[in-house]
């Protein structure tokens, strides 16, 4: 499956990327995070939420093909 992953704020620094395409097997959010933390060890120290197609999801959510996945560090609006 092919996904777009978007990084924001401090996670852009941790991954040196704003966005990337990623191929995965069918997986849950928790499994995806594990893969990403393996690829970008600095993510391990970060606190973030995950949004899929612009909705916050839990770790057991199963990711569908061609999802837009966003890793969101703590909010700081206002």
């Amino acid at each position: 499956m092919q996904h777009t992953i978007k990084y924001f704020g401090m996670l852009v620094e941790a991954t040196s990327k704003n966005e990337e395409q990623l191929q995965t097997e069918i997986c849950s959010v928790a499994q995806l995070i594990q893969q990403l933390e393996h690829r970008y060890p600095k993510l391990n120290e970060k606190n973030f939420k995950v949004a899929i197609d612009q909705q916050l999801v839990d770790n057991d959510f199963i990711i569908k093909d061609r999802a837009e996945i966003a890793l969101l560090p703590p909010f700081a609006g206002g």
């Binding site: 704020g9 401090m10 949004a51 966003a70 969101l72 909010f75 700081a76 609006g77 206002g78």
Partner: peptide
Amino acid sequence: VVEAIKADVPVFGK
């Protein structure tokens, strides 16, 4: 409104 913005909107500040 202000509390909801602070809690729910994905805005990041450096």
